[in-house]
């Protein structure tokens, strides 16, 4: 161990860590920019504004926004409960909520698909609305993938709130429910926005569960990731690349907004 912290050793350590960083950066920038070499820029905008791609953009924005809203409606109270309440079996519940993050989306999609072939699933489809190979199926698939992520992100936000704020709120005449709305949620505001952006971005890019439940039907269940899949399958590489650029642009915008809120949270 002698000399481990000596100057040459430290320098070597810095070089090694920065090299790894540089390699990853080059790798990602490389694969994205390689797309540009395949793009015919004269055709790019006509592809981008084609009926099919505009449909895919609209459908993706609609379904991912719906899925995000629905998942936040469930995730906010669920994350609060798991963060602030002690109950028997909390660790098991916590682990179950982590499963959708770890399990492959296509496996979850398959589970949903099988569910709609059970009597309960068929009853739901018959009496409520159709999910399999339909737009609500896309929303459901995206919800399945992102809700656990939303709970995980929001739990971290609620965990970081000092309970003293809520205690003071109680002594100032607010019931537990009022404290949640008047103290906890305003304190969690930036975390809520950050979690919404991240889960929304994850829903925009969702493919595995969506294709299993809603199928890959042109101009019907064609979200942006499915549009890439369909166009590549038909060897329409330039169309596929145009869609990749749309997804990259959405991701960049989401990350810029996210950075604004997370940096504000760090300085607060």
């Amino acid at each position: 161990m002698k000399g481990f912290f000596s100057l040459p050793g430290e320098r070597l350590f810095h070089v090694a860590t920065l090299s790894a960083l540089g390699f990853l950066l080059l790798f990602f920038v490389g694969i994205i920019s390689s797309l540009a070499t395949y793009t015919d820029w004269r055709q790019f905008f006509s592809i981008l504004f084609s009926k099919e791609i505009l449909f895919a953009i609209r459908l993706t924005l609609f379904t991912s926004t719906m899925a995000t809203i629905i998942s936040m409606v469930f995730a906010v109270p669920a994350a609060y409960a798991i963060s602030k309440t002690n109950f028997r079996g909390k660790n098991i519940v916590d682990t179950i909520l982590d499963l959708p993050i770890v399990i492959s989306p296509i496996a979850l999609g398959a589970a949903l698909f099988v569910f709609f072939n059970t009597s309960l699933g068929r009853a739901l489809e018959g009496n409520l609305m159709r999910f399999v190979f339909e737009v609500p199926g896309i929303v459901l698939a995206q919800f399945t993938i992102i809700s656990a992520l939303a709970v995980r992100l929001l739990k971290a936000t609620f965990d970081s709130i000092n309970p003293r704020y809520e205690r003071v709120g109680r002594t100032l005449g607010y019931t537990k429910i009022k404290v949640f709305f008047k103290v906890t949620l305003p304190l969690a505001r930036n975390g809520l926005i950050a979690a919404s952006i991240l889960t929304w971005a994850r829903a925009v890019g969702e493919f595995g569960a969506t294709v299993t439940v809603a199928g890959a039907m042109k101009m019907k269940t064609e979200t942006l990731p499915i549009a890439i899949f369909l166009n590549l399958a038909q060897a329409e590489v330039e169309r596929a690349i145009a869609v990749v650029f749309v997804l990259v642009a959405i991701a960049v915008i989401a990350l810029v907004i996210l950075r604004r809120f997370t940096s504000r949270r760090q300085t607060s």
């Binding site: 000092n162 003293r164 704020y165 205690r167 003071v168 709120g169 109680r170 002594t171 100032l172 005449g173 607010y174 019931t175 103290v183 305003p186 304190l187 505001r189 607060s268």
Partner: peptide, 29 residues
């Protein structure tokens, strides 16, 4: 319950609500 005890509580580090200004903090209760 605490909200009906009418006791003024000043916790350690004061826990002033960061999303409110001074006046709003004072009238919160």
């Amino acid at each position: 319950p605490p909200e009906r005890r009418e006791l003024g509580y000043v916790p350690q580090d004061y826990a002033l609500f960061p999303f409110l200004d001074v006046r709003e903090n004072i009238i919160f209760g």
